[in-house]
Simulated assay, not measured.
Amino acid sequence: MAKPKGYSLIQIILHWVIAALVIFQLLVNEDVQHAFADRLDGEAMDELGGALLHVSVGVTILVLAAIRLGIRVVRGAPAPYQDTPAILNWLGHATHVLLYGFLFFMPLTGAIAWFFAVEFSAALHEIGRLVLVPTIGFHVIGALAEHFVFRNDTLRRMLRATAD
């Protein structure tokens, strides 16, 4: 199957919605941490509203990520630019694989921790957060490097839909 020249509108919308939800999760997670600790201690969960919001957004990310991955498998994604150094294309691919993995790993470990009170899963979820943040940073730096250093339209492809 030939690679498309750009992303579809639904791929772009899913990218930015998922990105916004992930950032929200990273910034607004204190209530779920307190509620989880209270739950493990057998205490009343004072922060239940914020905790349920975090859990709901996490499940939403999981569903949207599954849809996004399905579309990517069916439609494909644009090929990397050949004039970008091969090592950078490889790093970009590896970063995307890692980010897709996190879009599934984080909601799953969080759900297992929350719904089944599994502390090990909560620990994995927390370690995942510590790895996810620099991975997102690396992704953003890579997109900016493609745009400003290599002067290609990689970044613009994620802003403007194409029909192909």
Rank of each mutant, 00 (worst) to 15 (best):
F105C: 04
V97E: 14
Y100N: 11
L91N: 02
P85M: 14
P107C: 14
F104D: 04
A77M: 12
G92T: 03
H93E: 15
F105S: 01
L103R: 00
T95K: 08
A77N: 06
N89V: 15
F102T: 03
V97A: 13
L108N: 01
Y81F: 12
G101N: 04
P107I: 11
H93K: 10
A77I: 10
L98Q: 03
P80Y: 05
T95E: 10
A86D: 13
Y100C: 06
L103I: 04
G92K: 04
A79C: 02
L98G: 15
L91F: 13
V97L: 14
P80Q: 04
F105P: 00
L99T: 00
W90P: 00
I87H: 09
A77L: 06
F105T: 01
T84N: 11
A77E: 14
P80V: 04
P107A: 11
V97Q: 11
L98N: 05
A94S: 12
Y100W: 12
G92C: 01
D83T: 08
L88E: 06
H93I: 12
T84C: 07
V97T: 10
F105V: 09
L108P: 00
D83E: 11
L99I: 07
A94V: 10
A79W: 07
Y100L: 13
M106W: 01
H93M: 11
L108S: 07
Y100V: 09
Y100E: 08
T95N: 13
T84A: 11
A86W: 02
L99K: 07
M106K: 02
F102P: 03
P80R: 03
G101Q: 01
Y81G: 06
A77P: 00
L91G: 03
G92D: 02
D83R: 00
P85K: 02
F104N: 08
W90E: 09
A86N: 07
T95Q: 11
Y100M: 14
F104M: 10
M106D: 01
L88Y: 05
A94T: 06
W90M: 12
N89E: 14
F102W: 09
